[in-house]
Computed example of a mutant assay.
Amino acid sequence: MNRIGVYPGTFDPITLGHMDIIRRGAKLVDQLVVGVTTNPSKSPMFTVEERVAIVEREVAGLAGDIRVVTFDSLLMDFAEREGATMIVRGLRAVADFEYEYQMAGMNQQLNSRIETVFLMADVGLQPIASKLVKEIAIYGGEIGKFVTPAVRGEVMARVDVIGRRGS
């Protein structure tokens, strides 16, 4: 039996924290499906198609069977379609845990055959959040500590296109 895990997120942009969870999550399963989705409460910098292309490029050199796909449905429906037995979630702080714990409980009610596994982010990567990376970039700050050089270039190019606030 193949163990398939799903790691869902918006990945807007993909950060070093995301990469850490993908790298480690891929070791736990035979195949890790990175599910790129939209979140109505977030304003994306990149389209879903752009994010998929960026994530595919970033994970190309990682060990393990990693597949990147889009989804626009309930997470548990997506996981079921992918044949997943596990949802992989990254935790940065206590605030993440409260939200993720509630989500895991709801997801278990929707489909008790799929387990949620939490991975703590690497200590050095815990403060990284895509939202903050975008905000730092928009205000002209340096984001190179939080994303790969290629992602940094794409974020900064997008910021130049949309214009920095306060300029």
Rank of each mutant, 00 (worst) to 15 (best):
E82A: 14
R113K: 11
G83R: 10
G140F: 02
R89H: 00
S130A: 15
T47G: 11
T37H: 03
I128V: 14
G124D: 13
E50M: 05
Q31T: 14
A104F: 02
I136V: 15
L132H: 12
I114E: 09
D65R: 13
R92E: 02
L62Q: 07
T37M: 09
P149A: 05
S41T: 15
G105N: 14
F71K: 03
V52K: 10
E98Y: 09
V151R: 07
D65L: 09
A79D: 07
E58N: 06
L75M: 03
K131Y: 14
G35H: 01
Q31M: 12
N39K: 11
V52M: 11
R164G: 13
Y139G: 03
V6T: 07
I4C: 10
K145P: 00
G25E: 03
M1T: 15
T10E: 08
K134W: 13
T10L: 06
E50I: 05
F97G: 09
A157D: 12
I66C: 01
G141F: 06
L119S: 06
L32W: 00
P149H: 03
G25S: 04
G25F: 02
I54G: 01
R57I: 04
G5K: 08
E154K: 12
T38M: 15
T116V: 01
Q126R: 15
V34H: 00
I138L: 15
N2V: 14
